[in-house]
Design a protein around this nucleic acid. Structure first.
Length: 556
RNA sequence: UGCCCGAUAGUAUAAUGGUAGUACGACAGAUUUUGGUUCUGUUUGUCUAGGUUCGAAUCCUGGUCGGGCAACCA
């Protein structure tokens, strides 16, 4: 199995073939080209891992290029968040570039096209142009401006740049084929007028290139060898190639893969922005969001996200990945790295009747049972009165219930075996106290009792307990594919956030380090929230533990 | 009904004319001081109809189904 090679995805095959045939001298240069108009999400992570991963694998490099050709939606805040997220994922770009750096070159390219008679200024309105493009089954018709001379086009285009015309008055279009079966070849728009402030070029420009006249050209300027994008750009490829050919510039090639879709969430920036703007979530980094910053705040690790992106594969077929796979990846990582701690989220009091009042013990608890050396241990205070989880006691337990109930015996993790002898209920019928006796010879690490118990439960000593806030998250949407709904917001899960204001934790948890994952034994993985303070600690639940018992109970 | 892309277990993804495999899930069992982890086993698949071939998931043709394309968005 060690010599079994990992199979290649179709892009790796293309690259290996290119290297084999000596294309570009074996050079591999990819790019990650986000538009700075929103935060990166897990779908971008797939693209990042693909682009940067390919470069790493084939001894190449990856540029970070902000595709900032639409000044009205783009902001510096997004630039910063994008850079932070990429680095957090563990990648470093070769160069930080902006399409806006190429505005002058792009303008010259446009001039060249005009001079070749391959572009013209069109005075038609947006509606007129749309109408004249025809339909997929009917060819388009030329507008009255299609046959302007190169000289006139040159003059008009220069005037556009000079600011002589208002927004929408004129556009520059490529002159290709109004009857093309590919709508993108029906004289696509190249430049439009926007008297808008640009986050980098300020007010230097009032004309801005369209995606199709910017992306491929930028790839070419940077000498990108493999320009990898998502499937919706497949029909753009002939235009991508046409422009590079007519401009006679470096022949970058575009390859398309299927974007990531995850069930029970939405992935479009527009929809995510809507959730943020309409306050359905706390912000772009809300732990329920599929954004990189949301996942980070939730407690996901870069390793887990990278593993996820590698496991899902790369192909051209539409897909919807089960969010369970993402959860598997974070559990897999955290299981190996998270330190174990005890926390009681829904407390009920347990009194050890034969344990002397006022007596205390300090018990050792290994930090990480998955590590060979346990990664050391912390001290856990133990006493006569403990908080335990309410669900760990049942008045009338079913046969396979390996926890507490009248007469039942369990081990208190890292401590003693106790037997339940009695319990107290209030007038409403709620259990308020559970009375147990402990077996002194059963102390963890020095057990001479010879007893074997099926269940082990976690606990927190009441006099030593610290109080923290705990936030439990569930999926944001109740349906698998919210985007397919008429109104996706109607399928928001109203219970996606459950706040426990007072949970009891062992004292050492106050030493928790931001960014580190902790396993609350038997409850799940948690991490400090970014809004947590030493005076008011807040923990986010990253993911629950697998719970076969809960599944068993659900069957009945 | 113009053009383009795609179709392999529940979900993804391999097999590049020669044994349909892997991961996650599901199910069963073993281990376990976390009903966690780990380990073992089981289950489920080539959209369809033809054709080429000794042999087809793979090549060809027709069909079916899914997705995309007619923003002064990217």
């Amino acid at each position: 199995m060690a010599n079994e090679e990992k199979s290649l995805n179709f892009i790796e095959e293309i690259i290996e073939e290119d290297i084999r045939t000596g294309k570009h001298g074996g050079r591999v240069l990819t790019r990650f080209p986000p538009e700075p108009n929103g935060y990166l999400h897990i779908g971008h992570a797939k693209s990042i891992v693909l682009n940067f991963g390919l470069a790493q694998r084939y001894n190449g490099k990856t540029n970070l290029r902000f595709d900032d050709t639409n000044p009205v939606t783009e902001e510096t805040e997004y630039v910063e968040s994008i850079k932070r997220d990429i680095q957090w994922l563990g990648y470093q770009w070769a160069e930080e570039l902006y399409t806006s750096d190429y505005f002058e070159t792009l303008y010259e390219y446009a001039i060249k096209l005009i001079k070749k008679g391959l572009a013209y200024v069109d005075d038609s309105s947006s509606e007129e142009i749309a109408a004249s493009k025809g339909t997929p089954t009917e060819p388009g018709t030329p507008t009255p401006y299609r046959n302007r001379s190169a000289e006139e086009n040159l003059r008009l285009f220069e005037e556009m740049r000079a600011g002589k015309y208002p927004d929408g008055a004129k556009v520059l279009r490529a002159k290709i084929d109004l009857a093309s079966p590919n709508m993108h070849l029906r004289d696509p728009l190249l430049y439009r007028i926007k008297h808008a402030h640009h986050h980098r070029t300020g007010n230097n420009w009032c004309i801005y290139p369209m995606y199709d006249f910017a992306h491929g050209q930028s790839d070419s300027i940077e000498k990108i060898t493999h320009s990898i994008c998502t499937l919706e750009f497949v029909p753009h490829r002939p235009l991508y190639d046409w422009l590079i050919e007519q401009l006679e510039i470096f022949p970058s090639k575009q390859y398309e893969f299927a974007r990531l879709n995850l069930n029970y969430t939405v992935m479009s920036k527009r929809k995510l922005l809507q959730l943020v703007n309409e306050k359905h979530v706390e912000g772009w980094d809300d732990p329920r969001m599929p954004t990189i910053s949301g996942l980070r705040r939730r407690g996901y690790t870069p390793t887990s996200i990278r593993n996820f992106c590698e496991r899902i594969g790369v192909a051209k077929r539409e897909n919807i990945i089960d969010v369970g796979l993402l959860e598997f990846c974070i559990r897999e990582d955290l299981n190996k790295t998270a330190w174990r701690r005890m926390a009681v989220l829904d407390p009920v009091k347990l009194i050890i009747t034969n344990y002397p009042e006022g007596r205390e013990e300090t018990l050792p608890g290994e930090n990480n049972p998955e590590a060979a050396d346990g990664e050391g241990s912390r001290d856990i205070p133990f006493s006569r009165e403990l908080w335990i989880e309410r669900e760990d006691f049942m008045e009338n337990p079913p046969k396979k219930f390996f926890r507490l109930g009248p007469g039942l015996m369990v081990r208190l993790k890292h401590a003693y075996i106790v037997t339940c002898e009695d319990f107290v209920k209030d007038e409403a019928g709620n259990v308020t106290e559970i009375h147990c006796s402990y077996i002194p010879e059963s102390k963890s690490g020095a057990d001479t009792s010879g007893l074997k118990v099926k269940g082990t439960i976690h606990w927190v000593s009441i006099p030593h307990a610290r109080t923290v806030e705990v936030r439990l998250y569930d999926r944001l949407f109740n349906v698998e594919n919210p985007a397919a709904e008429e109104d996706f917001k109607k399928t928001l899960n109203p219970d996606s956030l459950h706040i426990i204001e007072r949970a009891y934790v062992e004292p050492d948890l106050l030493n928790a380090v931001p960014g580190k994952g902790y396993q609350f034994i038997r409850k799940g993985y948690f991490t400090l929230d970014t809004r947590s303070t030493p005076d008011a600690p807040v923990f986010n639940r990253t993911v629950t533990l697998r719970d076969t018992w809960a599944k068993e109970m659900q069957k009945e």
